[in-house]
Nucleic acid binder design. Structure first.
Length: 700
RNA sequence: GCCGAUGUAGCUCAGUGGCAGAGCAACGGUUUCGUAAACCGUAGGUCGUGGGUUCAAAUCCCACCAUCGGCUCCA
């Protein structure tokens, strides 16, 4: 439940369970009475803060439970809250549920909606409720009640169905809009992996059919952007079962993207005074015993390799200890600080098999990692500089929707977090001070800290609107202590430095995955694996000129290829388009004669003939500037950063000659690049702020 | 790791006990073409892996591996 905990407003977790009645009574089965439905206002005062839509979805969850109870006698119910975009219900069922069961459940739900049963609220004395649920073999409800402090518990009833629940609900089942069951999944009771695995059924409900359809379309769009699909289609990376799960291979095009990102961040860091190092991927196990990583994470470390000498080596899960050794390699003076040691270092973590996903969750990953060793006095300014660096990178990448999470320890969890009260108080206070100095708005994530210290996590909304942690800055007073780090102060006395762990691009794997989805595969010019495809119209006449054009582009540092396949130009244009290559340079007799190229952008915009020199000048400039524009804005064109695409705004109606017979292809092409607009200005899609990333940063 | 589903040609998929299929891609040939798929032909599969049931298994059973959707975890 912890992962969910921050995804939804806090009160939503305080859900009651629901419980079925065997008959169809209106009268309370135990007390014989019930209170009249509460007014909406009263409900809102007494229960959780649901929006009307959430209330409807919560009611839909109860109706689903009603249906399942009817179809699967013996079901034991747990909790069933509204969540973003829908609802779920956790329960224990007599047999496994499959999607094939959905139609029957949905049908039964619609019958309940049609019957328009009122939701009737009442209060039961705690003991009565316990007795009732014991009698009806509902252990999860009993456990919930036992954890409630109140002497009375809320009960909701709709038609034949009775629920332990705080509410609120809609007035009657007829108010529930179109519903659809989405998936069935397992979920641990109370989110505890040591407890019973329950069946969770996810559903969604919307006020109108149109909104339901739009939601399903949205999911479909996200599916098209899935980096695993685009990674295959665009030949960016692969995963070989022969090599191993979670061990991706970067294909030439994906490797190009990664290398460009690496060159970009290395230069940026160099300019900021970071010193780049290389350190080995193996280390003695003892190193991680000292750091505490072994204690906290041995379950997700590769098992140690036993040497003949008895020495144990592990594949490193993190490289802070390595950088610490570099710091310790000689006596450091306060004059040397801050020392910023950075590395694109590869780490190995034995992630749980069920967690692996494409490039975004892997077992071998390269971190954009750095450790800053500084004095207490320097700590705040160093921290602030890192945050500014993050903001600069996000500006270049075009991330616009992101938020800051101050990740704090859970003071009650002495296992997970270092047990050092003063350390935590001091470091958390320092972090807050830095955030105040930056004037950042942030929210707090209790229990999200690293074991050695608090951190600032930067959450970027992904295409599904879910927040993902990309960057992180962590304040660490713990490891300097454990490794006995020192520097010599002005007074000649040995002092303890502070460490700042920071990751900006996360891992190269995950960042690339995020970019693929964020751009829907339409990489900006500077990141596009192939920037220009030269397309000769008739290869016997135009091949030489096409090669000449490509040579000229390559000579200026642009990545260009010539499509010499025995295909018609139309097919070459189509394939380049599907590969999302920014520029298609069509060359035929006219262009050859004029020393020009006919420029077609992947936005479908056909710019006509452009002198080769001019094209090179423009493309090179956009490339060097890391612009996200494909072409400079022209006269009479919308200029807003998030406005229409250049293609849509162009005076030439974007080569829509094929709009007739190929309407479908055009529509899907436009849709797949961002709901038909903003192709090159891909906004990170809407996302609630304040959620917790499902895939947190890989930074130590 | 846990719950559920899935795994057939490079890709997308059809095939539910009786001779392994289609489209695209690849390869060969014809076509030299002006902005999203020319035409004809050829070749290509241990049906995820291993066991079992059966006269006969892609199909039924068991185990394992991988992938997908969730749960738990994420230094």
């Amino acid at each position: 439940m912890r992962a969910m905990a921050n995804l939804i407003p806090q009160p939503l977790q305080r859900q009651g369970a629901s419980f079925p009645l065997t008959s169809n009574p209106i009268i309370h089965p135990i007390t014989g009475v019930y209170t009249m439905p509460a007014s909406v206002e009263e409900e809102l005062n007494q229960s959780v803060a649901y929006t009307p839509l959430q209330r409807m979805r919560h009611s839909a969850a109860h109706v689903m439970a009603e249906a399942i109870q009817d179809l699967f006698p013996g079901a034991r119910f747990a909790i069933g809250p509204a969540i973003e975009d829908g609802f779920y219900y956790d329960m224990e069922l007599p047999r496994a549920l499959t999607p094939e069961d959905f139609p029957a459940i949905e049908e039964r739900m619609r019958a309940s909606v049609k019957a328009n049963h009122p939701f009737v609220r009442s209060k039961w004395p705690r003991e009565k409720a316990l007795e009732y649920f014991r009698e009806h073999d509902q252990p999860y409800k009993i456990e919930i009640i036992e954890n409630l402090p109140d002497e009375e518990v809320g009960i909701y009833q709709q038609g034949p169905f009775l629920d332990l629940c705080r509410g609120p609900h809609v007035e009657s089942t007829g108010e529930i809009g179109p519903i659809k069951l989405m998936r069935v999944a397992g979920a641990y009771w109370r989110g505890d992996e040591h407890r019973q695995m329950l069946t969770r059924v996810y559903g969604t409900a919307w006020p109108t059919q149109e909104e339901l359809d739009a939601y399903l379309e949205r999911l479909e769009e996200a599916r098209k952007r899935d980096h695993r699909k685009l990674g295959k289609d665009l030949e960016l990376f692969m995963i070989s079962e022969e090599i191993g799960a979670g061990l991706p291979l970067w294909l030439p095009k994906g490797a190009t993207v990664r290398r460009l990102l690496e060159e970009y961040i290395l230069k940026l860091e160099r300019d900021q005074g970071y010193l780049h190092v290389y350190t080995p991927n193996l280390a003695k196990l003892d190193l991680y015993k000292t750091s505490g990583h072994w204690e906290h994470y041995h379950d997700s470390m590769y098992p140690p390799m036993e040497m003949e000498s008895g020495e144990q080596l592990v594949l490193r899960p993190m490289n802070c200890p390595h950088h610490i050794q570099i710091y310790k390699a000689k006596t450091r003076s306060y004059r040397d600080l801050p020392i910023r040691i950075a590395e694109l270092g590869t780490m190995y973590r034995l992630e749980q098999s069920g967690e692996l996903a494409g490039l975004s969750r892997v077992r071998a990953m390269t971190l954009n990692d750095a450790h800053i060793f500084c004095t207490r006095e320097q700590m705040l300014s160093e921290f602030i500089n890192v945050v500014k660096l993050i903001q600069e990178v996000y500006r270049v990448m075009g991330f616009e929707r992101y938020s800051y999470r101050l990740s704090l320890r859970d003071p009650n969890d002495k296992e997970k977090f270092e047990d050092n009260e003063t350390m935590w108080q001091e470091s958390e206070a320092a972090l807050r001070q830095a955030l105040d100095m930056l004037g950042l708005e942030y929210y707090e994530g209790i229990g999200d800290a690293a074991f050695y210290g608090p951190k600032l996590d930067v959450q970027v909304a992904n295409v599904l609107g879910k927040d993902e942690t990309i960057s992180t800055v962590q304040l660490d007073f713990t490891l300097p202590e454990k490794f006995d780090l020192e520097y010599i102060g002005e007074d000649g006395q040995a002092k303890r430095p502070v460490m700042i762990h920071r990751g900006i691009l996360s891992t190269m794997e995950r960042f690339t995955a995020f970019l693929i989805e964020n751009y829907a595969g339409n990489f900006p010019v500077w990141l596009a694996p192939v920037q220009a495809m030269v397309i000769p119209i008739a290869d016997d006449r135009h091949a030489d000129y096409a090669r000449h054009v490509a040579e000229r582009l390559r000579a200026t540092g642009l990545r260009a290829e010539v499509d010499m396949r025995k295909e018609r130009m139309n097919a070459k244009v189509r394939d380049a388009q599907l590969q999302k290559i920014p520029y298609m340079l069509v060359v035929g007799d006219k262009e050859k004669e004029a020393g020009a190229v006919a420029v077609r952008l992947r936005t479908n915009e056909n710019l006509g003939a452009v002198p080769l020199d001019e094209f090179i000048a423009i493309a090179s400039r956009l490339n060097a500037e890391r612009s996200r524009d494909l072409w400079p804005p022209r006269e009479g064109q919308a200029q807003a950063a998030n406005g229409a695409t250049p293609a849509q705004a162009s005076e030439k109606p974007a080569a829509n000659g094929h709009a007739g017979k190929r309407a479908n292809a055009v529509a899907s092409s436009a849709a797949s690049t961002g709901a038909g607009d903003a192709q090159e200005e891909q906004p990170v899609s809407d996302g609630q702020k304040g959620g917790k990333g499902k895939r947190a940063s890989k930074k130590a």
